[in-house]
């Protein structure tokens, strides 16, 4: 883990400026979640409006919404592709995202243009530098 102030950043993942993370799995699919910074900004998670399995998204589309006691926030698709699985556990226990944001993935996506799109994302070090500017 890299730490910037109170925020943790997990190495080996890719990051967006909107504070989503992407983990590339061995089979070429990816897991998507929100970062420690995002969950700390939101505070206690109230609901996660999970996307539907089968939903096709372009990079930058709204993937789903997460809602805290204080605010609603949109989660954007960090890569293009099809949602092939969602983390059902979050429907009943959204607080998992507060407890461990890098374990509590939201959706698994079968990407269609991963290699190109990964280039546009930040690695952990770059994201750490980015957080310092906020």
């Amino acid at each position: 883990m890299i730490e910037v102030g109170e925020y943790k950043i997990k190495e080996g993942l890719y990051y967006t400026k909107e504070h989503e993370w992407v983990q590339v799995l061995e089979d070429g699919t990816v897991l998507v979640g929100i970062t420690d910074y995002a969950q700390k900004e939101l505070g206690d998670l109230a609901y996660v409006e999970l996307p539907e399995v089968g939903k096709v998204v372009e990079k930058g589309d709204v993937l789903c919404e997460v809602e805290s006691v204080k605010a609603v926030s949109e989660v954007y698709a960090p890569v293009s592709g099809e949602v092939i699985e969602v983390n059902e556990e979050l429907a009943d226990s959204p607080e998992k995202i507060n407890e461990d944001p890098y374990e509590a993935w939201i959706a698994k996506i079968k990407p269609k243009n991963l290699e190109e799109e990964l280039k546009e994302l930040m690695d952990a070090k770059a994201y750490a530098e980015y957080l310092k500017t906020l």
Binding site: E6, K40, E41, G43, D44, V69, K70, N98
Partner: peptide, 20 residues
């Protein structure tokens, strides 16, 4: 406080640990 925000023109603590 973990979260300080403006409320009614005042810079106030919104939560220290968590609202809940």
């Amino acid at each position: 406080a973990k979260k300080i925000e403006e409320f009614a023109g005042w810079e106030m603590p919104i939560w220290y640990s968590s609202i809940k």
